[in-house]
């Protein structure tokens, strides 16, 4: 069994819209996967199934061989610590500084202040943001905010990094630097799932590409290019 298995997963939202239609796929530890497809294809929904933000209407999602829908509500916050997430809109806490945003992930886990101090400055250095650790999100650029968001997503060494259109709001240069950081994170052994619109990014990667359309997986290439067919 792989790290993540989706078996015949369908998702019907409350309003009756079917966002995922009988999706089956498996993802291995250490993979770097690009999830592509036009807007509304179901990429975000598929990702939410994996980090347990939404649950399947039908079918099963397994993480490490365990059925996600059977995880008790109280355990869910702990389960989510297997993941790091970054989004198009960064989702930084506006009332917290760069340092505090990244520290938050470790604070909720009850790590000591000394350990938090070291690890946060360490990761901010890797992301090239250590000199801005006392700034608030509105005081830094979009590319910088995304790097902070990335730092927050990986500081607790998650097994899987989920990146949902992380470059969607960024200029090409910032976007490239984010993708480079994603590759670096992947090289340390973290599984990366990247949902994106960005053709140039995907083509350069030469990694596995899953193409979605209308809630289904229509292509799954181990060394794919961004091709939308039909």
């Amino acid at each position: 069994m792989k790290l993540i298995n989706l078996e015949n997963v369908s998702k019907e939202y409350n309003d009756g819209f079917i966002a995922l239609d009988n999706v089956t796929c498996a993802i291995d530890q250490g993979e770097f996967i690009s999830l592509v497809g036009s807007s509304g294809a179901g990429k975000s929904t598929l990702l939410k199934m994996i980090y347990a933000d939404e649950f399947p209407s039908e079918g099963t999602v397994y993480f490490g061989g365990r059925d996600i829908s059977e995880i008790k509500r109280k355990i869910l916050p702990h389960f989510r610590r297997n993941f790091g997430t970054v989004f198009q809109d960064f989702k930084l806490l506006q009332q917290k500084t760069v340092f505090e945003n990244v520290a938050y992930t470790l604070e909720v886990q009850g790590k000591s202040d000394a350990q938090i101090y070291d690890e946060v400055h360490n990761i901010l250095k890797i992301m090239g943001m250590d000199d801005k650790s006392d700034k608030y999100p509105y005081q830094i650029s979009g590319g910088e905010q995304q790097r902070v968001s990335l730092a927050r997503a990986v500081i607790h060494r998650p097994r899987v990094l989920i990146a949902d259109e992380p470059t969607g709001n960024l200029d090409p240069i910032s976007a490239l630097s984010i993708v480079k950081l994603l590759l670096k994170i992947n090289s340390f052994g973290t599984t990366v799932i990247l949902a994106t619109h960005d053709k140039s990014v995907v083509d350069k990667l030469n990694r596995r590409v899953i193409l979605m359309d209308k809630g289904r997986i229509v292509r799954d290439d181990m060394h794919g290019k961004y091709i939308i067919s039909g």
Binding site: Y51, D53, K74, P77, H78, R80, R81, T85, K91, L92, L93, Q94, Y104, T105, V108, Q109, R152, A153, H156
Partner: peptide, 16 residues
């Protein structure tokens, strides 16, 4: 409300 969502995403418990 968006911040509560973020807090959940980074693994904060209900009590936290």
């Amino acid at each position: 409300r968006k911040e509560f969502e973020v807090m959940r995403l980074v693994g904060a418990s209900n009590l936290y």
